[in-house]
Amino acid sequence: MISLIAALAVDRVIGMENAMPWNLPADLAWFKRNTLNKPVIMGRHTWESIGRPLPGRKNIILSSQPGTDDRVTWVKSVDEAIAACGDVPEIMVIGGGRVYEQFLPKAQKLYLTHIDAEVEGDTHFPDYEPDDWESVFSEFHDADAQNSHSYCFEILERR
């Protein structure tokens, strides 16, 4: 099963200049909980913004210009990325925008964090048809001392 995991502000903004323009430790914990011990696929820009392999996960970098870091697996196509994951129950696609666009048609599940923030962004989550998805989990949280904005975790499964 292919799943996408993303944090989205208003207007589906997911990033600005290779960074997330908010401070939500709870979302980072949600991300870790849902990706640990699963292969993660990301684009080169996302890889560069993280700066290191995510521990406890097979890191697969999709790029037309593969790098030389041998701590991760470099691939040039969506099919190659899927094959590099091996026989696993769930593959997690973690961004960025172009990689989400490439995998959305193949995805069966979306793990979304909806952030109540209007922020400037240069990267967006692809538009998706809500009628194609069923919400199977939703959990709202107010902003607090650690988390700069209110947010809602949601899991959607393709109908």
Rank of each mutant, 00 (worst) to 15 (best):
A83M: 10
M92T: 15
D79K: 04
A9G: 06
V88G: 11
G97D: 03
A83I: 11
D27G: 00
A6Y: 14
S148H: 00
I155G: 03
V10H: 01
V13F: 03
R98T: 03
P89A: 10
P105E: 09
E154W: 15
R12W: 07
A9E: 01
T123A: 15
R12N: 14
V40G: 07
H124T: 13
K106A: 09
S49T: 09
R52N: 07
V10W: 01
S148T: 12
N23W: 04
S77A: 10
A29H: 02
K109R: 11
T73A: 05
V10P: 12
V119H: 03
D127K: 14
V72M: 12
A83E: 07
V119A: 04
E139V: 06
P55Y: 12
K38W: 06
K58I: 06
P53H: 12
M16H: 01
V13L: 04
A84M: 05
R44W: 01
P25L: 06
K32E: 02
I61A: 03
N147S: 09
Y151V: 14
N59I: 14
W74M: 11
R158C: 07
N34G: 12
E17M: 02
S49M: 00
N59D: 11
K58V: 09
C85I: 15
D142V: 12
P66H: 12
F140A: 13
R52L: 08
V75Y: 06
L36E: 05
Y128E: 05
L24K: 00
A9V: 10
I5Y: 01
E134T: 09
K109V: 09
E80Q: 05
C152M: 14
T73R: 09
Q108R: 08
P21N: 03
W47T: 07
D127N: 11
V72T: 11
I94Q: 04
S64C: 13
D142L: 12
F140D: 13
A117P: 02
D142Q: 09
P53S: 09
E48F: 13
W74L: 11
I115Q: 04
P89G: 09
W47R: 13
N18W: 05
P126Q: 15
T123E: 02
Q102D: 07
Q108H: 10
P21S: 07
D144H: 06
E48H: 11
F31E: 00
G86V: 13
D79A: 05
E80H: 14
